[in-house]
């Protein structure tokens, strides 16, 4: 009797497991399941947003996202890819360009931001118009001056490519390319880009020490910059007007375009200063071509206005010596491990 109960219990448990499995909504018809991977959270970082709640990270999903990210096929002209404007050596910003090139020799109207630590961002774009990492690629894909393509066409192109069909099968169970799968794969690739191995991070983890100038720069940074460029992400993810006069050719009102509130006029998302050394030029329209010019803006050129942030309204007093130390410190935010990480480079 005891044996019978044991066997019966085992059957029930197995049945239970099968039922639990049947509850799982994402059906996978392939025999080999994709291999799960995890987001690395540096020990000096807070917990990320729940970006991957409905998008389990897998090697195969990530690999698909990587291929998509580097593929010009996604654009109308078959050339422009995500990586055209988001270059790894520039921490996935556009090197040395205020504006990036879209299809047909067109320019974008804002400076391409770097891509890293995306899993910590609730909203994306300079104006915060995008409310989830998964839907972000739709903006450059469909913007007429960026990749200029329709979602429908992109999906058609992917479905007629055998290599992609294999990769969709490996990542999602069958070879059907859908916009949802494409966007989830891209989200996996970009969301996995974590930059947390700069000299600054090593110092924070007790594995390196700042030079005297860097240490002095860090003290100045904390006193004069850290309120908005908050550690350890070096942004507080808020929107602020830093007194950059409006560019009459663009008339870009920033956050106001999204909220339609006059209080948000000329406010832009505080950019992270991580990798700042390699992401020049600076500002939402890329008008500052060096870190020194950017600091000089706060020292000397802030233009006051009704929505200018109280923290910069009266400019920031930074001496030339302090400026020099500040730059030394900012250079410790360059993460060479990240910008050389083979996982994020162009696939073969």
């Amino acid at each position: 009797m005891r044996r019978f109960i044991t066997i019966f219990s085992l059957c029930l448990l197995t049945g239970g497991v099968l039922i639990i499995d049947a509850c799982n909504k994402t059906e996978r018809s392939s025999t080999t399941l994709p291999n799960a991977i995890t987001l690395e959270v540096p020990s000096n970082f807070p917990q990320p947003e729940d970006v991957f709640k409905d998008n389990p990270l897998t090697n195969e999903g990530f690999a698909l996202g990587r291929k998509l990210f580097y593929d010009g096929k996604l654009a109308k002209d078959g050339i422009a890819s995500c990586a055209s404007c988001h270059q790894q050596f520039a921490a996935f910003s556009t090197f040395d360009h205020a504006f990036s090139h879209g299809i047909d020799n067109q320019f974008t109207t804002r400076n391409a931001p770097g891509i890293f630590n995306m899993a910590w961002h609730k909203e994306l774009h300079w104006d915060g118009g995008i409310n989830h990492l998964e839907v972000q690629p739709l903006a450059p894909l469909t913007a007429p001056n960026e990749m200029g393509e329709t979602v429908e066409n992109v999906i058609r192109k992917l479905n007629s490519d055998t290599r992609y069909r294999e990769m969709f099968r490996a990542a999602f169970g069958d070879e059907n390319a859908t916009s949802q799968r494409m966007l989830k794969a891209l989200s996996q690739f970009m969301g996995m880009m974590v930059s947390g191995n700069a000299k600054y991070d090593l110092v924070m983890r007790g594995k390196a020490t700042f030079s005297q100038a860097e240490q002095s720069g860090y003290t100045i940074f904390k006193a004069k910059c850290g309120a908005c460029h908050k550690e350890p992400l070096f942004t507080d993810l808020s929107y602020r007007n830093t007194g950059i006069p409006v560019n009459p050719g663009l008339n870009d009102m920033g956050r106001m375009r999204i909220t339609r509130s006059g209080q948000d006029s000329l406010k832009f998302k505080v950019p992270s200063l991580r990798n700042v050394q390699v992401t020049a030029p600076y500002g939402h329209d890329g008008r500052f071509f060096s870190i020194g010019a950017m600091i000089d803006h706060y020292r000397l050129f802030v233009q006051d206005g009704p929505t200018v942030d109280p923290l910069v309204k009266r400019k920031i007093s930074i001496s030339l010596n302090e400026k020099s130390d500040l730059i030394q410190f900012l250079n410790t935010l360059t993460d060479t491990v990240f910008i050389k990480d083979k996982r994020f480079s162009q696939p073969d």
Binding site: D54, N55, H132, L133, E134, V135, L138, T150, V151, E152, I155, T178, S179, Q180, L183, K184, S187
Partner: peptide, 10 residues
Amino acid sequence: GAQTGALDPM
């Protein structure tokens, strides 16, 4: 995030 079916951005 990204949805499918009637909610497909396509």
